[in-house]
Design a protein around this nucleic acid. Structure first.
Lengths: 279, 279
DNA sequence: AGCAAGGATACCTGGCCGGTATCGACGGTC
DNA sequence: GACCGTCGATACCGGCCAGGTATCCTTGCT
C-alpha cells in the first residue's frame, strides 16, 4: 500500500463525501473513486458503504482509518525528522514540546543542564496547546515532550519520570476559600458561584465551565473571578494578579515525565533524557 | 514520501550495496539509484556516502533508517489488520501472540474467560520465539500479546498487568542444588559445572551458555544436565523428566502483561483485555 | 596499463495517475 | 409522477514517471 492511497482513504473517511474529499486533496472526484475501489479490491472487501445520499464506514473501514492515521503520522515523522537531520547547519538539533505555561521552572533547569553537557545540540522549545504534545511527537514535529500524568495520554511513548508533586487550587483571591490554609477535593466538588475549568481533549468532564487552551487564558479567567481550577504545585512559582493558590491535600499527585517516540535512536535525545533524569 | 521510496531506502541501507538491494527488491539497479537520489534531493541532503568500494549511512541516513522501519511497519500493519477485518468470515477476529511455552495456564484461563463473553470473536493463538512479540504487534501480524516484564521490551505498547510472580531456578534433578528448599541469586551467580542459558535479543549477557529459542529446547537442555536457568513460578506447572525447580527467594518479580498497539480501536480487543484484567 | 566492480547517466517504453465528459441511481419537490 | 439536483461510478484520453537496457565513469587491484 502506498502513502498516497492511505491519505486518499483518510480524506474520504473523514469527509464521508467523495467530492469534498477530492477537493481537500486537490484532485478531481473520479480518480479518487477509482483509487478507493482499487484499495477495496486489493484489501479483499468493502471499506465504505455507499448508501443513497451518503457514505458510511464499514467495520474494516474503521480499522483502516485508525491504522492509516498512525501509519501516515509515522511516514510524516520520518520525513520531518530526516529533513531536520540533514546537515543544513542552521536548523535545531532537537525540538522539545511542552504545554504552554507548565513546568517552566523544570524546563529551564533541564535546558541549562543539557546545554552544559559536552556535545549538546541546539534545542528548540515549542510551547503548544494542552493535549497537543502526543500528536506532535507522533508525526515528527517534535522529538521529545514534557507531559503530566495522569492528565496527558502517554500511550505509545517511552517515558522517564522527572518530578512528582501535589496539587493546588487556583482561585480568585477575593473568594472565601482563598484565605484557607488547605482544601480537600470534597470542598471543590461544587464551589459556590464558580465553575471548574475544562480542558480540551480530557474525557469531556461535562464541567459547565469555560474551555481553556493555555495558561494565560487560565489565569486571566481566574483573576476575573469567572472560574477556578486545580494545578500542580509548581504553578505557585508564577504570581498573578488577583489569583490565590491553596494546597489541596488529598488531590491525586501529578508526575511530570519526559517522553519520546519509542524507536528513536538519536544520541542527542538520549543525552537530553539522561540530563533530565539527573536533575 | 511514498512507501515504495521508504522500502527502497531501507533495502539499500541494510545491504549497503545498490545492486544487491535492487536484486532483493526485484528491480534493476538504475531505477534504484535514481529513486535514492530523488529522495536525497527532496529531503535536502545526502543519506548515503558513496565511498569508493562501498556505501555508508550518513547521520541523516541513520535517522531515516529507524524512522522508515517504524513507518513501514505501521503501513504493513494497516494492510494486514484491515485485510483481516474485511468480512471474509473464515478468518480469525484477533491474533494473540505469546512466547512458546510461557504462561500457558494463564493463557487457557484467558481464552476460556473471553470465549464466554457475549460477542466474542475467534482468537488465533500464535506462539512465537522469545522477543518476537513486539515486532509482530508493530507490523500487524498480531493484535495482542502476552509479555513478561522486565524481560520483554514493551516500548510503545499499551499494557495492563495480569499477574506478578516470583521466580524459580530450573536445574537438572541430579544437581546438588535440586534438593535445596530454596536458593538465592548469589548461589546462582556461578553454578559449578553448569552454564546459565542466554536468550536471544536480551541485552547480550555474555553468558557462555547455549542460546535457546523455545521452552522445549530449554527443558531438554536442562534435562541433559547441560545448563540451568531461572523462570517464573508458573513454569512449575509443567513437569519435565530430569528437571527440578527450586524457588529463588530474592529473584526480581516477573509481571505478565497483556499488550496491544496504542492506537487500536477494536471492540473485540477491548473485550479481550477486559476479560484478562478480570481474571 | 588493463581489468573488474559498482554506482551514475542516457534514453526509451508502458502503465497508471489525473483530467474532462457523461452516466446512473436515488430523493425531494411541485 | 415527471422533473431536477446531488453524488458516486464509468469511459476515455493525455502526460508523467517508474522501470528496463545500454553505457559511461570512477576507483582500486594486479
Amino acid at each position: 500500500m502506498e502513502t498516497r492511497e492511505l491519505r486518499y482513504f483518510v480524506a474520504v473517511a473523514e469527509e464521508l463525501h467523495f467530492s469534498r474529499a477530492a477537493q481537500r486533496l486537490g484532485i478531481a472526484q473520479p480518480p479518487l473513486s477509482r483509487a478507493i475501489s482499487q484499495l477495496e479490491r486489493r484489501l479483499g472487501g468493502p471499506l465504505l458503504e455507499r448508501n443513497s445520499r451518503g457514505v458510511a464506514l464499514t467495520e474494516a473501514g474503521r480499522v483502516l482509518l485508525a491504522e492509516a492515521r498512525a501509519a501516515i503520522d509515522a511516514v510524516d515523522a520520518a520525513e520531518r525528522r530526516t529533513r531536520r537531520a540533514t546537515g543544513d547547519g542552521s536548523e535545531p538539533g532537537l525540538v522539545l514540546v511542552s504545554k504552554a505555561g507548565a513546568a517552566s521552572e523544570l524546563l529551564t533547569k533541564l535546558l541549562d543542564a543539557y546545554a552544559a553537557e559536552p556535545g549538546a545540540v541546539k534545542v528548540e522549545v515549542d510551547l503548544c496547546g494542552i493535549g497537543e504534545q502526543g500528536p506532535r511527537l507522533r508525526d515528527g514535529r517534535a522529538d521529545v515532550a514534557l507531559l503530566h500524568r495522569p492528565f496527558d495520554v502517554i500511550d505509545g511513548l517511552d517515558t522517564e519520570e522527572l518530578l512528582t508533586e501535589g496539587q493546588v487550587a487556583v482561585l480568585p483571591s477575593s473568594h472565601p476559600f482563598a484565605t484557607r490554609s488547605e482544601l480537600r477535593m470534597a470542598d471543590l466538588e461544587d464551589v459556590p458561584g464558580l465553575p471548574p475549568m475544562s480542558w480540551p481533549g480530557a474525557r469531556a468532564q461535562a464541567g459547565a465551565g469555560p474551555e481553556i487552551r493555555d495558561s494565560t487564558q487560565l489565569y486571566q479567567l481566574v483573576g476575573l473571578g469567572r472560574a477556578f481550577t486545580i494545578l500542580p504545585e509548581s504553578a505557585r512559582a508564577e504570581q498573578h494578579h488577583g489569583v490565590a493558590t491553596v494546597p489541596v491535600v488529598d488531590a491525586p499527585e501529578v508526575t511530570t515525565v519526559i517522553a519520546w517516540p519509542p524507536h528513536s535512536r538519536s544520541l542527542a535525545l538520549a543525552a537530553l533524557v539522561r540530563a533530565a533524569t539527573r536533575l
